[in-house]
């Protein structure tokens, strides 16, 4: 498959009153056309900022992308002018966000909001855009789509609003869909609806997806490849089956161990990760996971391990080969 996106050494910082927050600390990865990549991490791991930096959707100031390249279809997105990046955003790269309640404009009808992108990016006239909007709403499974175009966001439930967001995202046939925790605010039965919908649409449209989430369960069901982030670093990257069967970073191991599972017949004690993530203003010199890691050696305190290959398409940032010492 051809490469769609290549991120090189991306660094994003926030310059705040309390100090410089090192949100993203030199991450590199790539994405093939039509591939689904999950970016997993806890709050403050840099998973959202890292991905939003790709399309420069971070508040400037206080945020700033201080280093890196983002190659998308032969262009470095970080070097584009504001006008040029607007041609890419919402058009060739679409976004859906966590909170379907606040990402729609409450005083505009749904039809107006979907057709806006169609008129702007595809140059449709109003009538064409409304017609296409109705088709899109049907595509995402909203019953009576044509009639609902004149409704306002408050007349839709949370799950339905997220469908509207997806319809907006898909309106310009994007090559890449960025989904930032799109199901976190939804109930589990609605989450299942949305996940199935995105899987189906991806199959039909063939777009690539970056799915940002903290939920390792959702990842298992839909991603092809996974990036695990911690304190602004990528600590592990692997194909989805490899990651769950053979995790190599102690943090990934810890995350999987701390999850209660629905299919756990004899629930024992959860293996929690003790302690807290480091302060991003004052990152330690060595491995950021050092203080919480049960496998650490002296080297970890002084040197931050690079993300290195540990298998085919499998990378981890750890000085220790934990297979030998797994407890």
């Amino acid at each position: 498959m051809a490469k769609l996106l290549e991120v090189k050494n991306l660094r994003t910082r926030f310059f705040t009153q309390d100090g410089v927050v090192h949100a993203v600390n030199g991450i590199s990865y790539s994405l093939d056309e039509g591939e689904t990549l999950a970016v997993v991490g806890e709050s403050g791991s840099g998973k959202s900022v890292g991905v939003m930096s790709l399309i420069r959707l971070i508040p400037v100031p206080p945020g700033k992308i201080v280093d890196g390249e983002v190659w998308f279809d032969g262009q470095d997105l970080l070097k584009l002018s504001d006008d040029e990046i607007r041609q890419v955003r919402g058009n060739r790269i679409a976004m859906i966000f966590q909170d379907p309640m606040t990402s729609l404009n409450p005083v505009l009808t749904i039809g107006r909001q979907i057709s806006e992108a169609l008129q702007l990016h595809l140059g449709m006239d109003k009538e064409q855009a409304y017609q296409r909007s109705a088709e899109l709403l049907t595509l995402v499974g909203i019953p009576g789509a044509a009639k609902r175009l004149d409704d306002y966001p408050h007349q839709f439930s949370g799950g339905m609003r997220q469908r509207v967001m997806i319809a907006m995202g898909l309106s310009c046939n994007p090559q890449l869909l960025i989904a930032d925790e799109p199901t976190t605010a939804l109930d589990v039965t609605i989450q299942a609806q949305i996940v199935e919908l995105v899987k189906k649409l991806k199959h039909e449209i063939g777009m690539a997806i970056i799915w940002i989430t903290h939920d390792l369960g959702v990842v298992a069901g839909m991603a092809e490849r996974v990036i695990v982030m911690y304190a602004g670093y990528i600590v592990e990257e692997a194909a989805v089956h490899t990651l769950y069967a053979d995790p190599r970073h102690p943090y990934t191991v810890g995350l999987l161990g701390s999850l209660p599972r629905l299919d756990d017949e004899q629930p024992g004690r959860l293996r929690s990760i003790e302690g807290l993530p480091p302060d991003l203003i004052d990152l330690p010199a060595g491995c950021p996971f050092y203080a919480r890691c049960t496998y650490h050696i002296d080297q970890c305190l002084h040197e931050n391990p690079p993300l290195a290959a540990v298998g085919v398409g499998h990378k981890a940032a750890c000085w220790v080969d934990i297979r030998g010492v797994l407890t």
């Binding site: 589990v188 039965t189 989450q191 299942a192 996940v195 939920d215 390792l216 369960g217 959702v218 990842v219 298992a220 069901g221 989805v240 089956h241 769950y244 069967a245 999987l256 999850l259 599972r261 629905l262 299919d263």
Partner: peptide, 10 residues
Amino acid sequence: AVPIPDPVIE
């Protein structure tokens, strides 16, 4: 509807 963190089972 609850996802299980295991791609083989999923």
